[in-house]
């Protein structure tokens, strides 16, 4: 006999205690702020590695019309509340203006018609939701880079922040917003889309204008864009983490 009965009982006892501690302790570990900080370190690793594997112009796969989803799921806000958006919608967004300001040389105020006069890009791409589903759709819009070059960026410009018309949560900081850095802002497939599947962008998908940032997850693709603010830091906006969902624990870099 290699293990004596007392040792065996001790081992069984410790194994049972360890198992109980493991199951009961998971939530305690999850809720521990120090543990959370350590785990968040993987986000920087993922961003650095993925950026190293991707050139600034590497494209996400583009699909054919045969690959398109029969129904493209609408997620998040489906119809922004409030009179301001309702009156814009009533008027077919003729009164809508896109504001581009912040750290730019020439702040802009562009109508939908003016945006549509700029060179357009059409792409059939896959939309990947953080929840796990995917949908393939066709988008037409102006490259964000074109708009930003027109405005002219200051030398300390670092991020483009998208302020949206929808309040996703009925709280003081419940307004939807998103942000991307200049690598993604000037990526050829990063467009401000005004049509989807050859139709004017439907309300459920962000009318009149939404962002497409094809190498990241769905929550980065801000809908109902009203204003693009160029900033040098994300600290002063929302809760300071760069987006509505980022402020609620999701990764700012959503390449995975």
């Amino acid at each position: 006999m290699i293990v004596s009965p007392t040792r065996r009982r001790l081992l069984i006892g410790s194994a049972a205690t360890a198992a109980a501690a493991l199951l009961g302790g998971c939530d305690a570990l999850v809720d521990n702020q120090h543990v959370a900080r350590v785990l968040e370190g993987a986000e920087a690793l993922n961003k650095d590695l993925q950026r190293a594997l991707l050139s600034d112009t590497t494209l996400a796969r583009e699909y054919t019309e045969a690959d398109m989803s029969p129904v493209f799921k609408a997620n998040g806000t489906q119809h922004p509340e409030g009179d301001a958006y309702a009156s814009l919608l009533d008027n077919g967004f003729a009164d809508w203006r896109l504001t581009v300001d912040g750290k730019v040389d020439r702040p802009l105020s562009l109508s939908l018609a003016e945006l549509k006069q700029l060179p357009a890009r059409t792409q059939i791409t896959r939309h990947d939701c953080v929840e796990g589903w995917s949908a393939i759709g066709k988008w037409t819009g102006v490259q964000l880079g074109t708009v930003l070059k027109t405005a002219g960026l200051n030398t300390d410009a670092r991020y483009a922040v998208f302020h949206c018309a929808d309040k996703y949560e009925n709280t003081a900081d419940g307004q939807y917003y998103e942000s991307i850095d200049l690598v993604d802002a000037f990526h050829p497939q990063t467009i401000l889309a005004y049509t989807m599947n050859d139709q004017n962008l439907p309300v459920a998908h962000g009318a009149p204008l939404r962002l497409r940032v094809e190498r990241q997850l769905g929550y980065k693709h801000a809908k109902y864009i009203m204003r693009i603010e160029i900033v040098d830091s994300l600290k002063a906006i929302g809760r300071g983490r760069g987006g509505f969902w980022e402020d609620r624990g999701y990764e700012w870099y959503a390449g995975i």
Binding site: V30, A36, E40, A42, N46, R248, E251
Partner: peptide, 23 residues
């Protein structure tokens, strides 16, 4: 709930744990 980390519904935390331990 006894088969998920965390036990309560929290996708963002599940993702952080998943991607860290994937590394």
């Amino acid at each position: 709930s006894w088969l998920t980390i965390p036990s309560y519904r929290d996708l963002s935390t599940g993702r952080r744990w998943h991607f860290f331990f994937a590394w």
